[in-house]
Each structure stands twice: as structure tokens, then as C-alpha cells.
Amino acid sequence: MEDIAALIGSARATLYYHFSGRDDLVAFLLEEHLRVAANTIALAVTTTQSPAAQLRSAITALVGFLGGQPGVCAGMLSFAGATGRLGTLMAAKDANLTEPLRKLLDQGAATHHFTINDSRDAANAILGAALIATLTRWEDGRATQDPEFQQALTDQLVRSVARA
């Protein structure tokens, strides 16, 4: 907590006023990270577009968000697993990211733009694929913000649910 306080230019006591300890602070940061990701996606989606165009916009925003901070994503996942907060992380992920994608997928399925069996499974597959592809590229030392990579990943994820 002392290092964090120094990093943000605050007294350690101030951090303890708001957070019970390191785990509480990191849990807050994790939820904030998911909230920002959800806002990034929401801002990218325009309801005047077709469900397919909305999904493409949402995935493009997601891939860009993940590519912009893969180390934070990896660290947050590691923290959640190590502290037994994976369930909390998954619940926050469902509320902030899965639900909006599910709505788009359900709309697209209803209008015959997408072919899916279960929108929750499809949304989680999209989220998981985007995260794993980005983290693997980052771990390999390759650019996660490379426009060609992000475009190819977005295209692949959209094709995974598009009606042929």
C-alpha cells in the first residue's frame, strides 16, 4: 500500500481510509477496469446500426481495449485467481460485458443475422477468444495494438456467429 500511495501522491492512511487493504484495493481496480471496458464498448455501439454492425463495433472496441492494456488484464486475472475472487470477477464480467453482448447476439439471432444456440455461451466465447488471443500475442512480445491483428481478430469473431 505504501508503494501505491507514493505512486499516486497520497498518504498511505488515505488509502486505508477507503480500502481495508491491498486485496480490497485491487478488487476495486478490477471492477473499475471492467466498468471502463463496458463503457468503451457501449460508446462504440450505435443502435441505428444493424445487429451485425453493432456487434462488429462492440468487438472492435473490446479488442482495442484489451490490446491497450494486456498487462492489466493478465494481472487482474492472476489476482482474482490467487485471492479466491474469481467468482466475483466472473459475476462482474457477466454484468458488465456478457450481458450487453448477449443482447446484441439475441437481437441478431431474432433478425436472422446470427446463428447461435445460446447467447451467453456465444458472448463468453467472444470475450474469451478476444482475451486469449490478445494475451498470447502480448506474452509472445508481439504488438497487441497492431491494426492488422485487431482487424483480423474482429473479423474472425464476427464470422464465428454470422449467418452464412
Rank of each mutant, 00 (worst) to 15 (best):
G108C: 03
G108Q: 04
A109V: 03
A109R: 13
A110I: 00
A110V: 03
A110F: 01
T111R: 05
T111K: 06
T111I: 01
H112E: 07
H112D: 10
H112L: 06
H112M: 06
H112I: 01
H112R: 12
H113R: 11
F114R: 02
F114T: 04
F114Q: 03
T115Q: 14
T115W: 05
T115I: 08
T115Y: 06
I116H: 08
N117E: 13
N117C: 01
N117W: 06
N117I: 02
D118N: 15
R120C: 09
R120P: 00
D121T: 15
D121K: 14
D121M: 11
A122G: 06
A123R: 06
A123V: 07
A123T: 08
N124F: 01
A125T: 12
A125I: 05
A125M: 14
A125G: 13
A125L: 13
I126A: 13
I126W: 11
L127H: 02
L127N: 00
L127T: 05
G128W: 07
G128D: 10
G128E: 10
G128A: 11
A129S: 14
A129P: 00
A129H: 12
A130M: 08
A130W: 09
A130N: 10
L131H: 12
L131Q: 15
I132T: 15
I132K: 13
I132S: 15
A133C: 09
A133K: 01
A133Y: 04
T134V: 12
T134L: 04
L135E: 11
L135I: 10
L135S: 08
T136H: 14
T136W: 02
T136Y: 11
T136R: 13
R137A: 03
R137F: 08
R137K: 08
R137Q: 07
W138Y: 15
W138D: 15
W138K: 09
W138H: 15
W138F: 15
E139W: 06
E139D: 12
E139I: 11
D140H: 13
G141P: 05
G141M: 09
G141I: 04
G141S: 00
G141E: 06
R142P: 03
R142Y: 14
R142M: 13
A143K: 09
A143M: 02
A143H: 07
A143N: 12
T144A: 05
T144K: 03
T144G: 09
T144R: 02
T144E: 03
D146N: 07
D146T: 00
D146M: 01
D146C: 05
P147M: 07
P147H: 04
P147Y: 03
E148H: 05
E148D: 14
E148R: 12
E148Q: 13
E148V: 15
F149R: 04
F149I: 07
F149V: 01
F149N: 04
Q150E: 03
Q150H: 00
Q150D: 00
Q150C: 02
Q151Y: 04
Q151R: 14
Q151L: 11
A152L: 14
A152V: 09
L153Q: 05
T154S: 09
T154W: 02
D155R: 02
Q156R: 13
Q156F: 10
Q156I: 03
L157M: 14
L157S: 10
L157K: 14
V158P: 04
V158M: 03
